[in-house]
Amino acid sequence: MSEISRPVPVVTEENRPFWEGLAEGRLLLQRCSGCGHPRYPIALVCPRCLSKEHGWEAMSGRGTVFSSVVFHQVYHPAFADRVPYNVAMVELDEGPLIMTNVVGTDQVTVGMPVQVIFTAIEGAVIHQFVPRDPE
């Protein structure tokens, strides 16, 4: 199935720093210059104060599993030989929730401490997470 490519990021002017950051091994999110709110999803304006001013800030990459599921159904041919696979929402220590995969274990539980890794897929680098020891 390797000839069928999996979905890849659509890079836009708005999200370019995010994807370029991942390629450099950094998880960069927007932080509002108006109110300090760190935000995800990537957005034109701050959802709290509507300021358009923001900086791109490296996150620690630490977080905890907010919720976690295992895909058994194949919805896309590129994932046919990957099922069962994990999809999770991770709550970053800095606050934002992001969509991701927790890999390197098949025992993913809500509340589990995790750490970001940077995974090269065809044509992009994406964020995934692995378990980490709690501090």
Binding site: R6, P9, H76, R82, V87, N101, Q128
Partner: peptide, 12 residues
């Protein structure tokens, strides 16, 4: 955009 992580379908 969540298809990047294999997030598909109404059930998810």
């Amino acid at each position: 955009s969540w298809g990047i992580w294999g997030m598909f379908g109404a059930a998810a």
